[in-house]
Structure formats: structure tokens, C-alpha cells
């Protein structure tokens, strides 16, 4: 046995490895067919868009880690609401960037508290609670944002599209954010509590863990990250739109599943989110490069998710 084999074996055990391997393979399969655009450009674009997947993925991951039945379906509606509210309040003025941020976070806080209140007070599964609330949030966003044609503040738009050495600044920030959240997950009482609840909620309660407080915090956090995504996305894409959150329901769950987090709860990792988000975006790029239409793209995205979840298997169903 060589001295290398042990670190290698440990690397092979990492749940997030396969997402990165998949992303790298797809990237390699794409670059020979991208005339005029270098391999670096493809990566830059991938990091740019993956950033938004990762932001919502973090929140969704903590929710899913709470165990069977926990999932946040209100993320797309929350993205739209926070994006619309922030854009309208900032009214394209750089001076109001902070105000917009506070407003977006306020939306997230309200949504998160409302979601958990429904779960607790009506004693309904989180799927149904977040689904019901998403209807209301979506309507609020539509009613509030109707006819919205406001540009984001230039400074904020510039920040979301800035690059350093080809690397999007926002992506760097979110890599740091993911690293921070990884510490939160593994090294704080809150993170340990989330993982413990996901493995066995009753045992967690009997071990003295504050189950209700932890779950409330997690649903609030998921809504906050969705709001952050909405805030940044509206600045990035030149304004809020009513369907801006649409693709993030599948994306938020897909990056968690593909990233090697257990859908049955109690086991999570942050790096996998990045691997999975890059993988998802690069797949789309690859199919575009090959000249395949939207239909094939949808079919393959769906099949990949089903294949990954089938390969990973499930301990218990999510509901």
C-alpha cells in the first residue's frame, strides 16, 4: 500500500466528490465545441449562475436536513417577493441599496416566521404549509410588482456582475458564505441540533435539544437566503420579474440532492452544493452547445435528478 492511498481513500468517501467529478466531465465535454469562447469563459458563466443556485440551496439544505417531511416549497415565491419589494423601494438609487437589503431581509423574516407558524399551529406537514403560503406570497408579489419596470441601482448591478481575474466577485462572496455555513453546520450548537433532529427528532428532544427553536430558525434562514437570492438576482438581471423565482424550486432541491446531502435528513455537506450547481449549469451549457433545444434540456435535467436520487437511495420517504 502506498502512502498516497489513505488520503485518496478518504477523498473517495466524500459525498460531494461525485458532483464535482460530474461538473468537470461535463465541462471537458463542452469546451471542444465552444468556438470563439474559451474554456475559461464557460467556467466564468457557470460560476456566475451557479452562485444563485447555491444561495437558495444552502437554505433548502438546512431544511431538508431536518428530516423526513421537511422541505421549503415557498422559495420561488419568496425570491420573487423580495426581488420586487427591494427593486421598488430602491427605485434605482444607489443611496437606497441598504434600505432595499433590509426590506428584502424583512420579507424573508416574515415569510419564514409565517411558514413555521403554519407548521406548528395547524400541525400540517411542512410541504403543505410552505405550499399554501407560497400561493399567498406569490399573489402579494404579483399585486405589488405589477407593471414593475424599474432598473436596479447601478452600483448594486455593477457589484453583482463584477469580476476579478475572470472570477465573479459574487461567486467569491458566496464561496466564503458556503464555507461559513459549513462551520455553522458542523461546529455550532445550532448546526448540531439540525443534524440531530434530522436523524431522530424524538431522540433529539430527549437529549435536551431545543427542537422547536431550531426548526423555526431553519425555516426563517431558508426564507432569508431565498430573499437574498431575490435581492441579488433582481440586481443582476436588470430588475425584478414575476417569474424570476420559477426555476429555483427544482434547482434548490436538485443541488441539495445531487450534492450528496441525504434527502432522508441528518446528513449534509456544503461543498456538494457548489459541485451540483456547477454541474446543473454546465449540463445546460453543454446541451446548448450541442444545439439541442429546450425540450431535450428539460428531459435530461429531470432524468438526471431521478437517476441521482435512485442511485443514492432513500432511508425514509420525505413525507
Amino acid at each position: 500500500m502506498s502512502a498516497l492511498s489513505r488520503p485518496l481513500a478518504r477523498l473517495l468517501e466524500k459525498p460531494w466528490l461525485w458532483a464535482f467529478v460530474g461538473a468537470a466531465l461535463v465541462w471537458l465535454a463542452t469546451i471542444p465545441f465552444t468556438p470563439g469562447r474559451g474554456a475559461g469563459d464557460v467556467l466564468t458563466a457557470a460560476f456566475t449562475f451557479a452562485t444563485f443556485f447555491v444561495i437558495v440551496g444552502i437554505g433548502q439544505m438546512f431544511v431538508i436536513t431536518l428530516g423526513p417531511g421537511n422541505v421549503d416549497l415557498s422559495i420561488p415565491a419568496t425570491i420573487t417577493l423580495a426581488g420586487s419589494v427591494a427593486t421598488k423601494l430602491m427605485d434605482g438609487q444607489d443611496a437606497l441599496i441598504a434600505l432595499g437589503f433590509v426590506a428584502a431581509m424583512g420579507c424573508g423574516l416574515a415569510v419564514g416566521v409565517f411558514n413555521y407558524a403554519l407548521i406548528r399551529a395547524l400541525r400540517i406537514p411542512p410541504i403543505i404549509a410552505t405550499l399554501s403560503s407560497s400561493f399567498i406570497i406569490q399573489s402579494t408579489a404579483i399585486a405589488y410588482g405589477r407593471g414593475l419596470r424599474i432598473k436596479p441601482p447601478p452600483a448594486l448591478a455593477e457589484f453583482t456582475t463584477a469580476r476579478v481575474l475572470g472570477m465573479p466577485v459574487l461567486a467569491i462572496c458566496v464561496i466564503v458564505l458556503a464555507a461559513l455555513m459549513s462551520v455553522v453546520l458542523h461546529r455550532t450548537i445550532y448546526g448540531r441540533s439540525v443534524i440531530a433532529i434530522g436523524q431522530n427528532q424524538r431522540a433529539a428532544r430527549l437529549a435536551g435539544i431545543a427542537v422547536d427553536r431550531t426548526r423555526l430558525a431553519t425555516y426563517v434562514m431558508s426564507a432569508l437566503f431565498a430573499s437574498l437570492c431575490g435581492y441579488l438576482l433582481s440586481a443582476f438581471s436588470g430588475g425584478a420579474s414575476l417569474n424570476m423565482g420559477e426555476e429555483y424550486l427544482l434547482a434548490s432541491i436538485a443541488v441539495v440532492v445531487i450534492g450528496g446531502t441525504s434527502v432522508a435528513g441528518g446528513f449534509a455537506n456544503l461543498p456538494g452544493l457548489w459541485g451540483a450547481a456547477l454541474f446543473l449549469f454546465l449540463i445546460v451549457t453543454m446541451l446548448n452547445t450541442y444545439g439541442l433545444g429546450a425540450g431535450i434540456r428539460y428531459v435530461l435535467t429531470g432524468l438526471i435528478i431521478i437517476a441521482v436520487i435512485t442511485a443514492a437511495g432513500g432511508r425514509k420517504p420525505l413525507r
Binding site: G295, V299, L300, T301, I305, I309
Partner: peptide, 27 residues
Amino acid sequence: ALIHLRNLPSIVVTLGMSFVWLGVAVL
């Protein structure tokens, strides 16, 4: 059958399927 045999969470599987149906419909 798949959901039962592999003990999969139906919401993830059907969420994936929603894209498959949509894609085929677009085609």
C-alpha cells in the same frame, strides 16, 4: 414501483418527472 422498491421520496422523483413531461411536451 421505483418509489416503493428504492424507498425514494416521492416529491423529489415527481419534481424530476415534471421536467421530463414538460420537456417531452415541448418536443
